[in-house]
Design a binder for these strands. Structure first.
Lengths: 160, 160
DNA sequence: CCTCAAGACTTGAAGCGTCAACTAATGCGG
DNA sequence: CCGCATTAGTTGACGCTTCAAGTCTTGAGG
């Protein structure tokens, strides 16, 4: 094929294909559990979870988008749906009218409490239990290094 | 909250959040490059690539779906689009009329050859170059172990 | 003050993926 | 050989994400 391209070595290729498989299948598996048991998307879950441990159960949209790893546009659509379900309310920030603050309602909090155990169990089943503690440590380092290339200058686990 | 649930330890949580970030952002970054430079999805790319190194550049739909980590339904839609673009043709298998065989056309092959270097470069940039060879090995083991929990009984890199 | 660029979202349309329902071809048990 | 369950794939509707374009604030310059 092309001469100037540095193709993947066999080891690189198999590692990459395994990671690609993971990227395709793990989201589906997690979404499936959440959808079936709670009618939530993984992204919606992260939004609710992100609100639930913020001061006042509130957070501005941009922050929340960053936390949940999504675009502002995506968040806006999702929050609109969550608002229709009564789980979240939005209001403009006093002081800066450009900012929208989303707040988790009580029903939203209760719903999250219902949904959480099943989701955590799924994460445990698929990820945590599949790995040794040592591997879990390796995974964090590896994922952070890749993320740093994909999206340089993101807040690296500071919002925790 | 719930008493019976075993929540995630801090170490487990941070590792999981890093992996979750990866799952959300890496697909987007790869799709963005492919879309911009070739008008292909990552999934479409995998389909073309899967055909290109199969005997006769042909493969039955179910195999191809497994290779590309997608459902048969998803593949069917995608192949229909690729067929409209002239990159692939489908015909029923002689011998077993239930089976559909997809074949990469010459234009499809040429197109793949155009698209491949950019995609490989992106994979290198985001994944391979971010890691040491040792980490790459760890990643493969980790990803395979998780995949085994998510989707037990899948062919583990045999189609290579 | 007034203007205008930048910031922070929101919206609508278009495309992709999923799910459930459907078609069509096999092959096995009687 | 006939009937029917099984296998393989296709389709349509619906929901979610993305992208581009829009709105509505702020704040800085003149």
């Amino acid at each position: 094929m092309n001469e100037g391209t540095r193709w993947l070595e066999p080891d690189e290729l198999t590692a990459w294909m395994s990671l690609a498989g993971l990227m395709f299948k793990l989201p589906g598996a997690l979404d499936y559990q959440l959808q079936r048991d709670s009618g939530l998307t993984h992204f919606e879950y992260l939004v609710l979870a992100g609100l639930s441990d913020s001061p006042n159960r509130s957070r501005r949209m941009s922050d929340l988008a960053g936390f949940a790893n999504g675009s502002l546009s995506r968040l806006s659509h999702v929050v609109k749906r969550l608002e229709r379900r009564g789980f979240v309310v939005r209001r403009p920030d006093e002081g800066d009218g450009r900012i929208t603050v989303a707040t988790l309602t009580d029903p939203g909090y209760d719903f999250l409490v219902m949904a959480a155990p099943g989701h955590v169990a799924a994460v445990r089943q698929f990820v945590i239990d599949a790995l040794t503690p040592e591997q879990l440590g390796q995974l964090k380092v590896i994922a952070d290094q890749i993320l740093d290339k994909v999206d340089p200058g993101r807040p690296c686990s500071e919002s925790w």
